[in-house]
Structure formats: C-alpha cells, structure tokens
Design a protein around this nucleic acid. Structure first.
Lengths: 343, 343
DNA sequence: TGTTAGCACTCTATAAGGTTGAGTGCTAAC
DNA sequence: GTTAGCACTCAACCTTATAGAGTGCTAACA
C-alpha cells in the first residue's frame, strides 16, 4: 500500500492530537480537527489502512488509535521543521556561567528541564586522551601537600596528600619540576611503569613520595569519569500519567538518581556521532532498559575540536518533538558560540 | 488517666506492628502478638483508653488503630535502645574514602540509603568563619591563570581566570606572595575594602588583576554554600505506599532533587544543636513543608572542634526508628574516628 | 474489680451486574 | 471514491450486594 499525502496528513493529525491529550484518538476527532473535510467514516477507512501499515495501534478494539513506535519514527523523520523559540533569556543566563564548565552544564540541564518539562541530562565533554597540562604541588601545612592537576580542557583536579616528614621549600620546588618535566603533555595511558621507574630514580630519597603523588593524580583524574553526568527535572516524569505508575516511575527515577546507567547512553549513542547533531530514540530504541516506554532526544555539542559531550532529554513517547528538537538546536548554536569565544 | 506499664506495652506492640505492615492494627492481632496473655476484648478496652489519651487514632470507625504523632513521639523518646548492627563493611568502605570529604559524604549518604531503605541527605560541614589557609597562583598557559584556594578544613577551591597580557614568572611569584601575606588567616568577612585597597596599592600596575583575583576567590568560596548537600536514595520514597501517591511523591522527590529547601533543615535544626546528637522530627514537626507526612531523623557530626555537619534520614512516619537511630549512632562513632585520625 | 465471651453494629474493600458513550467495521447508497 | 447509518465492542463508571475485619457494649465469671 502507498502512504499517500492524505494518509500522511491524517497520521500527522493523529500524532499531534495524541501528543496534546495523551488519549487515544478517534476518527471523528480527526474529521473535525483537520482541514481535509472528510467524514469520520472516510477517516476510519484511512486509519484502518494506517493500522495495517503499522503506523498506529489500537490499545483495544473499539478504542481510538495511538501512534506506534514506527509512527513516531516517521513523524520525527519527516515532519520536523524549524521552530522559532523565545529563548533569549536562556542565552543571557548561560553567558554568565561560561567560565565554569561544570556549573554551566548543570545549568544547561536545568534550563532545558524547566523549558521543556521533561527530564534532562548533560554529560561533561569526554576527552579521549586526557593530556596533563600542568601540575602544581604546594605545601599547605606541615603534614599536607596539595596536588593540583590541570588536564586538557582546563579541567582542574586536586587532592591533598598527607606526608610523613616535613618537606623544605626547595624539595617541593624540585618535586614540582620533576613532575612537570616528566608528565606534562602525556596522556594518562602513557604514564607507564617505565616512566614511573625513571621518575623514582630521579627522585632519590623521595621515591616513595613520588609514588604517592602519582597515585593521587591517577585517582583525581579517574574521578572525572564517573562524575561527568548532570541531570535535572527528573521529577517531571511524574507529570505524565503513562510514566508515573509506581513501577515505571520508580525505575526511571532511579536511573536518573544513580546516573551510572546513563553512561551507557553516551557510549551506545557515540557511534552514531559521525553524523553528529540531533538523534531521536523512540521506545525500545533507547539504549537504557528503564526508558523503554520513553523517548529520548540527544544532541552532541563540541567544546573544542574533537571533544564532545552529549545532552539528552527524556520524556514520554508523546513528547513534543518539534519543541524539543528546536530548543536543542538553538541551544547547540548558543553553546557553540560560548565555547568558540572562550578559546 | 495513667499510662501504666501494660498500656505502654500495648502501645509499643501497636507501633511495632504498624511499622512492619503499614496497616491499621486490630485488637486481636495484639492479643496474639504480645506475651501479655490478654484477650482481644481487654486489649480493646486498653486501646480505647490509649485513643482517648491521644496516642493512637482510628482512620475510621471500624478500623484498627494507627499511632498518632504523639504516639510516635512517646515511642522514640522512651523505647529506643541500642541495637547491635552488622555494619562492619560500612566501616571499611568509609575508610577507603577518608581523604576526599565530598566523596566521603556522598558515600555516607549512599550507604545509609542502601542500609535503611529510606531517603538520606548529608550536609557538608559548615565553617562559620572560613579562614583562608593558603593561596596558590600558577600560570597554566599564556592566557590562563589558575587560582587555587585552600580554606579551613582543607577544602580546596579553584578557578581559572583569563589574563589579557602575558605574565612573566617573577610577576606570578610576586602576586603569590602578595596574596598570601594579605589574605592567609583572614576569614572572608574580614576581606574588606581597606584590605583590598592596600593590596591594590602594593600591586601597582597589576591592580586590575588583583581585583579579578579577589573576585575569583570570592566566587569560588561562595560556590561552597549552595553545593553543600548530598542526597541518596530519594527513590526509596516510592517504596512506601502512604508516600507514593502522585502528589506527595512528586513534592518530596522534587525537594530532594532541588536540594535548596533542604538547607532549611540544617538551619532550622541548628538551634537544637546545643544538645547535639540525634533528633527525631515526626510529621508536622519537620521544618520542611513537603515532609509533613514523613519523619525525619537527623544527626550532627563534628569534623573538628566547632565545625559541624548534619546527616538526615527521611522516611514514612512508620519508619523503623530503632534501626535508623542505632545505625546513625554507629555511623557517628565511625565518622568521629575517621576525622580524629585525620587531624 | 479486672477479665473475658459474645453479639450487634460499622465501615472498607471487593466483586458482580448494569449502563453509558466513544469508537469501530461494514454495508449500501450517493 | 465518499458518506450516512447501523450494529457491535469494550473500557469506564456507577450501583448494589457481600464478606470480613474490627469495634463498643453488656453480662457473666473468677
């Protein structure tokens, strides 16, 4: 069967209506809702066809139709258009935070959540090779040595380590130079036993301390990985009846609270990133089990050449795709500008 | 009327039973449940008395009884005893994180949530006067200056500021000395215009930069305030039917997601902190509106002389008070040890 | 005088039957 | 190809009946 123009219009009308109401849509509604001037009977015939073709489903005989995953898919693939959006204040708010990337991203998540009424998540940019840019050791007091590590993208990590013996100023200086000469420019995979061995040799009596320092650096940088996800608006999920029954809501909210599962989102969707931009996952298409009754829209932002992060919006399948996509598009442009200006 | 020993035992039995089941408790249940060897009729008489005295309520005429807020209050005040608890692995887990206070606290929240099945929150220790302990400026690259500030309690804050002109090594060193001589030992309220003026004079041509630096420090430290709350297990709330209807759950979860309202918890309960230790707030006693159908148990921990933080557990009124309180008590001892050893 | 058995009463929760209304599929006429 | 009309289906809702848990009260008992 052919999906002609009229069928497409009817499908569109069904989906639009369902997005608004969340209720199955009947033929009479469409008959009035569209400007096709067709009777409900004709619509019924067309709907019957659309159902046969798999774009819509009936929850039970004698109910209206709701879009199937395939229907949504067609909708987002063919029907999305640019939408003008008033997010000027969003722009202002973002600029004020441009210098603290974590705060900025957290804020982005929040803004999106407030604007869309869906749950949102933002991942920190993932540096594939985290090169050490700079290391600074300083004595804070007699027994504490502060280690600050700056890695690519001006991400700053720090760790305080306890030293057994008092260090004089000169030793600290020496250690500083040692650490920087050896480590600056290396990424973490390059810090292998050979390098470590060499460093320890050079350090002489402070070999033990150097070991501690390296551990501290390792830990501080590793921390980065599991803390790179910011979420907001998770409770918005409870606003949608089809997601807010005990079981589903609990699972979903837990996913957002724990965040761990969300990493799969980044990894599993990373491969699609060659055609970067905005991706829509509907129902079972999502890589996270607990979202099987949701839709997920992700966007990829680029903070600098080759360094990407993801933004995701999770809502019911009857999510307002147009709004979400256009909001994301605008936001991407915004972020691009902010990052460009910075570097 | 007198609350004699028998009445107390019956009340205790009612509460215990209600804690387990979440259902109103009838006289026959108690008659079998206790070792008092009394018939249900007798229990009924006593229950009637207990109701008159305000310790229990009937949700409706022909239902069993549930404890009133007053009943719970009596229960927690008189009936809590030490409970031996197997939290040895809790101890181990905590020790491995002792050197990163934020991670440690986050972990404490999580452990508690997992152990109790309630929602938990932990606040970072609140330094009343945050004295600057140490400042370190370092050049990261041509245009970025990294400012690291260590404040009391070894809390490390950092901020990268962009500089217009290239700074030579000597200037950075000078600025370092300047910042440290003026600011070390001061708390933030003491950094007033007079001090700033003097610093700028000394800085000469770099007066503008000093201003930027001071702003950065101010910002970095201010950040501390609103980020000082860690939560975990918020979704546990959905496990308790009496809290998981749409309205209540939504409100509660939002409180946990936003965290802002939770600060009131710390402030409002701070006054009771003279008799520090464990506090129980039942129903309307809680300082946070959205928790009016919950109970809240808080504990105060001391990280060093005069520096406190709070731990809170939120659950239904039929929370297992014994378990919660004893878990908290053990945890307090644990934390005390960890902090003592550190300093 | 405290305790208990027994009984009538109350009220929720659950199930069963009846009704309504939205929606469909099919057919026959336009 | 479109439409009006009709019989049919089924979830949602209301009503009613029933079961069972629990109470309060009274009278008898130790």
């Amino acid at each position: 069967m052919q999906l002609d123009d009229r069928k497409l219009k009817i499908l569109q009308a069904i989906i639009r209506n369902y997005l608004e109401t969340g209720e199955p849509v009947g033929s009479r509604t469409i008959s009035k809702y569209t400007d096709l001037n067709l009777s409900s009977a004709t619509i019924r015939n067309e709907m019957s066809d659309l159902e046969e073709m798999g774009y819509i489903v009936q929850p039970h005989t004698s109910a209206g139709r709701i879009p199937s995953d395939k229907g949504y898919r067609l909708y987002v693939d063919t029907m999305l258009e640019e939408r003008v959006q008033e997010i000027d204040n969003m722009k202002e708010q973002l600029e004020s935070k441009a210098d603290r990337i974590e705060l900025l991203l957290q804020h982005v998540a929040k803004l999106l959540a407030v604007n869309t009424n869906y749950a949102t998540m933002v991942t920190r940019p993932q540096y594939k090779h985290k090169k050490v840019k700079f290391i600074q050791l300083s004595e804070v007091d007699e027994s504490s040595l502060l280690t600050v590590i700056v890695i690519e993208g001006n991400i700053v990590k720090n760790k305080i380590i306890t030293v057994r013996e008092l260090l004089d100023r000169e030793t600290v200086l020496k250690l500083n130079i040692l650490m920087n000469t050896f480590l600056t420019g290396l990424d973490l995979t390059e810090i292998n036993m050979a390098v470590i061995q060499k460093m320890k040799e050079q350090a002489g009596e402070y070999a033990g301390l150097v070991g501690d320092l390296l551990n501290a650096i390792g830990e501080a940088v590793a921390e980065e990985d599991d803390l790179g996800i910011y979420t907001s608006g998770a409770t918005n999920i409870l606003k949608y009846p089809e997601l807010s029954d005990r079981e589903k809501a609990s699972e979903l909210l837990y996913t957002f609270e724990e965040k761990k599962q969300l990493t799969r989102l980044i990894n599993d969707t990373a491969e699609d990133a060659n055609d970067r931009g905005i991706q829509v996952y509907i129902g079972a298409e999502t890589p996270v089990e607990s979202m099987k009754d949701c839709s997920l829209v992700t966007a990829t932002y680029e903070i600098e050449e080759g360094v990407y992060g993801k933004i995701g919006i999770v809502g019911p399948k009857r999510m307002d795709y147009e709004k979400v996509v256009s909001t994301l598009q605008t936001l991407m442009v915004e972020l691009d500008e902010i990052f460009k200006r910075k570097t």
